[in-house]
Amino acid sequence: MLKRYLKLSEFKLQWSIFAVLVALFTLFIMGAPRIFLAPDMYYSFMSTIPFMTIMALALTPVIICKEIDLSFPSVMGISAWMFASLSASTGNPTLALIISLITGLLAGLLNGILVVKVGIPSLIVTIGTMFFWKGLVLVFSAAGGITLVPLRGTILFQSLVGRIGGVIPAQALWAVGLAFLFWLILNRHKFGTHIYFTGDNIESARMMGIPVNKVKILVFTQLGFFAAFAGILLDLEMSYYWPTSGEGYLLETIAAVFLGGTSAFGGMGTIFGTFIGCIIIGSLESGIISVGLSGYWTNLIYGLVIVISVSIHSILRRRT
């Protein structure tokens, strides 16, 4: 009797995604013990996975709101270009950082306004802005890449992508810190509650006085901001700006969020799930190659892991 009322499925869901992670790493360790029992592989994950993680964290509330954003990798790209070119031309990386973050924020705001005020479905809006920002990057950066080597050793560099204790990448701490912040907002702040209610049933939310339009605009805006932040981190980590930066993040990031149990139907999703989802997606390729399979297997295994996990979520959520 009591059981049918509890939020058990949500706990089960978080455990199940965690179990998938443990199962995968067990396979990796059995298949390539030398690599997966030594710390180097993990330091490497900590340097590469955070870029996607930061965007996935910020994408999670968008999907909880029953919206989608396909433009964030392009926003990452334009912000990365903005940061690189400005810090190269002005020699002031802090200024470049601020302007780049504002650019991302405004790009996110634009998505939000087009969705809420103009009333275009977010899928369509963000396909448009995705091409727009990507196109703008290509026009601007026709000259090619920009080196950022001079920034190495600056405080900015150290605090964003330095190696703490000589080994731990700072971006990993940023990702963990932001995960905590997002958890706090979604679970312990009024704004988070409003995000869940907006995605759950927008008409109900509106009738109960939740400012659903404001919620959606803010949610898109913060994703733009954090996409810019990820772009800056990527610039600094590479010490070089590539016109292709941002590419390849779209599907993996979205997959990580869904893998983590966020529902495409809105109103449901957890930061814990997204975080684990990112680790899974971010470690899969190296794991596959380390255990001796050729890289050709990567996509197939991605597909399997995603379909299986999402099926488990769906079964766990089915009404009893």
């Binding site: 049933n201 109900s204 109960m208």
Partner: peptide, 16 residues
Amino acid sequence: RALGEQQALWKNIFMG
């Protein structure tokens, strides 16, 4: 009814 069906009861009571 204006409830958020997938949310906890206590959140629904204070919704908005």
